[in-house]
């Protein structure tokens, strides 16, 4: 199968988030960037699907600047065949989906896998927008996927349970945790990644739909009120009369 995997470059999960003094931008100083964890699952699943199918290619695509290239090389080391970077600072889900749609529309991918959301802007909007732009079906938050010929069986999380679906290729899916475990690159993969193609394409551009005007950190907590182990009844009383949550 010919599979496309969409990759975001995001701050490491341990990052302490800070903003610029005017709160207009994210302070990236000293921040380690990683492949978005859900996208890493999508990549691993794409490789597994082709291993089951006995062949195929996996292309990773990223909308972003050159500083993401080490992570695209990592995706190649994990096992992707080639990488594409569309050269634009990603600022809006619509913009990212539009750029990927322009790239993908005449490439006849059998399957496009994404993570269910990026852990930086958390919109989770790119997979659905991309599917709509390419006029493809989309299944979001999938926890399993198998493919038999042109038909795929997937399971997705729904509110209060899980749903099994059948969908014909080609389609877009966004991956939820549980779909697989991320694959760690081995030494051979890292060596091979150096000679795999990493293509840089110009962005199409276009008007942005959204713009962040200001960031803020969550309000600091007032402080923790400590109680003794013997005071659990008092805790219950406080939750009822002071916090009013029970």
């Amino acid at each position: 199968m010919k599979i496309l995997v969409c990759i975001s470059n995001v701050p490491d999960t341990t990052t302490k988030i800070t903003f610029s003094p005017d709160n207009k931008s994210f302070n990236a100083t000293g921040v380690q960037y990683i492949i978005n964890p859900y996208d890493e699952l999508a990549l691993t699943k794409a490789l597994e699907l082709n291993e089951v199918a006995g062949g195929g290619t996996v292309t990773v695509v990223h909308v972003g600047l050159a500083d993401a290239e080490p992570n695209l090389r990592k995706a190649l080391a994990v096992g992707a065949d080639d990488a594409v970077r569309i050269d634009a600072a990603p600022t809006d889900g619509f913009q990212v989906a539009s750029e990927i749609a322009t790239y993908a529309k005449d490439k006849q991918f059998d399957l496009i896998l994404c993570g269910r959301e990026s852990i930086d802007y958390n919109g989770g909007v790119v997979p659905g927008m991309l599917a709509e732009m390419l006029d493809l079906p989309e299944v979001n938050v999938i926890t399993s996927i198998t493919i038999n010929g042109g038909l795929s069986q997937v399971e997705r999380d729904i509110d209060g349970g899980r749903e099994a679906l059948e969908v014909s290729l080609p389609f877009v899916a966004s991956c939820q945790k549980e779909i697989t475990e991320p694959r760690i690159p081995n030494m051979r993969g890292i060596m091979m990644a150096r000679s795999k193609p990493l293509q840089v394409l110009p962005a199409q551009g276009g008007a942005l739909h959204t713009e962040v005007s200001e960031y803020a950190l969550p309000a600091a907590k007032a402080g923790c009120r400590f109680l003794e182990v013997s005071e659990v009844e008092k805790l219950v009383e406080l939750l009822h009369s002071e916090a009013k949550v029970i």
């Binding site: 889900g93 619509f94 989906a97 958390n122 919109g123 989770g124 909007v125 790119v126 997979p127 659905g128 927008m129 599917a131 709509e132 732009m133 989309e138 299944v139 979001n140 938050v141 997705r156 999380d157 729904i158 509110d159 739909h209 959204t210």
Partner: peptide
């Protein structure tokens, strides 16, 4: 912004050429 809304909103935004604020 439930799983249902997460599936619907992006498609709807593209159809309506609308900006989307998720969450």
């Amino acid at each position: 912004n439930t799983y249902t809304g997460k599936a619907l909103a992006p498609r709807l935004a593209v159809k309506l050429q609308a900006a989307l604020a998720a969450g």
